[in-house]
Design a protein around this nucleic acid. Structure first.
Lengths: 303, 303
DNA sequence: TTTCATGCATCAACCCTCTTGATCCATATA
DNA sequence: TATATGGATCAAGAGGGTTGATGCATGAAA
């Protein structure tokens, strides 16, 4: 059974407009309906209620007692509804929830988000960090920053920046073995998360495809930020995206012993549900990225 | 454009139910819809608002912030709506508006309506009288008493009583011409509304088809009650439905000089819109008539 | 672990509601 | 009397909304 059959909300909506205008034609104009449609809906409602709601006088209609009793309450209810909707609209238009990896959040967003907020004083920002993959059906977020290939079904993706990596460690730790001169020197140290494929890629690129990383199955941290912290503390060598740790380098807490950086095909992307692409706040965020990030563009490096 | 497109009341209604049950399936059951339909409506609403309203967790769903903000207001609005409707229903179920001719109202209804009200203490009665034909589109009435053939398009008719008539006058007036012995005596008196076809019918039946009534084009009153009043006052002879004036006869204010009564094929009927036939108050009124009026039956004497 | 049960998403197909446009009718206005 | 306004009625058509089957993910149970 159709829903409108049990509870004629549409008919009520039409009734409300007619009661206000006291004219089928005018009400139709307001609602974008023909006079016929209005007539039909009113008749429907009247039949359902078993009561006439309007008296059909020549050239004008009048509310019956029943209609007059009903009208104000229906009006109120619909005002409430539309208020609720527009209120919700403006509130949620007003806060942008960004879900990012901890790494990206702390090393890039935290540093640049100020500009977005200056440009969009009416949009509050909520920044959430989760480990890797998020599902917009399961997490409340308007946009997300993901690392990947830039292809997710149902999601629109904009390229943010390439992701490359290189070993980094604390200067003290480097000194402890008399400095790091060549890649194999690193193997004298504890490797933070040797299972990370990045290590293999990097050593291969450096000319040592057979470096015995597996021998050191130490900590598995998962989040780059944590590995970096461990490296700063001198617990070992981590493989990191150098741009994110320029500060640490400048402050002498980390060094990047080799120029060589590698990529694994995964990069940073801004993603959001296809269907939400026209939301004002998402537009604003795109505009901010376009302005702030030279490499920002939709669906860029498909390699 | 469909109305639901601009303002998704149906979707909101579904949303309200889902928010209450926190389950698409349950909500569907409540509304008499399939889970699919519910899913569809929610998605519709979410797309329209550009906001997720529910988080799809395994085996249960949760309101998002946006959804949680929206739900209570929508609930309130719909409660208001359904309250308004049921309130209106019960109020108008509670008063029966009867539209009758002044004659019938004062001579039959007024006398018997007490029984109806005893039987139906919860139904208030509003008795309105208008001259003849009423249009349910133009007058607020639940039922009407009409004189006619019992055939009106769109209306259901129940036979109430035959309508017959005979001359009546005040005893004083009769004495003034030495008593009324035979029909032609009446012509010595002023005929109240000689244009009334009833006179011609009656005189013809009495054996005087050529009685010169047209000679006395006096008052045209229209309502039987007024003619009766004129007759009581001794202003002339009226042609009336004798049953309605038994009191006046008993009190010596009117006499019925001849036994002969005539009919013109028009009788008294209870009528109401076909569509309203199931209304409780109309049922109650029918029950009352069945009980009170032996001749009461639906669509009876088609002659 | 494997299997089962629950609950939502997706898809294609169909029905019926709702809308449209034309026409008719009644009445108020000029 | 002629014209304009506003609602009712009718047939026809579109598409919104519904259904039922199916798939998928997860939690509970075996």
């Amino acid at each position: 059974m159709k829903i409108s059959k049990q509870f004629p909300v549409n008919a009520l909506r039409v009734f409300e407009a007619v009661a206000r205008h006291l004219s089928f034609t005018k009400a139709g104009e307001e609602l974008g309906l023909t006079q016929t449609a209005v007539s039909y809906q009113i008749k429907l409602l009247e039949d359902l209620l078993g009561e006439s709601l309007f008296l059909r006088r020549p050239r004008r209609i009048t509310l019956t007692d029943a209609g007059a009793r009903l009208a104000p309450k229906v009006s109120e209810a619909f005002e409430l509804l539309s208020a609720a909707i527009s209120d919700m609209r403006s509130t949620s238009e007003g806060t942008l929830t960004i879900n990012a990896t901890a790494t990206f959040a702390s090393h890039w967003l935290a540093r640049h988000l100020g500009i977005f907020q200056l440009d969009n004083p009416r949009i509050a920002v909520r920044l959430e960090t989760t480990q890797e993959i998020i599902d917009f059906n399961k997490t409340e977020a308007d946009v997300a920053i993901r690392v990947g290939q830039g292809q997710w079904p149902g999601l629109r993706a904009h390229f943010l920046m390439r992701n490359h990596f290189t070993p980094m460690l604390s200067p003290k730790l480097a000194e402890s073995i008399g400095g790091v001169r060549e890649p194999l020197d690193l193997l004298k140290l504890r490797i933070i998360d040797p299972g990370d494929r990045w290590w293999r890629i990097w050593f291969t690129a450096a000319g040592y495809p057979d470096a015995e990383l597996d021998l050191y199955p130490r900590s598995k941290m998962g989040a780059q930020a944590l590995e970096a912290a461990a490296a700063v503390a001198g617990h070992g060598v981590a493989i990191l995206r150098p741009e994110f740790y320029q500060d640490d380098v400048a402050m002498g807490r980390l060094i990047q012993p080799f120029e060589l950086t590698c990529e694994d095909g995964s990069h940073y992307w801004l993603v959001y549900p296809e269907a939400r692409r026209h939301a004002a706040k998402i537009r604003a965020f795109r505009a901010f990225l376009t302005k702030t990030l030279p490499s920002f563009e939709e669906r860029a490096p498909l390699e």
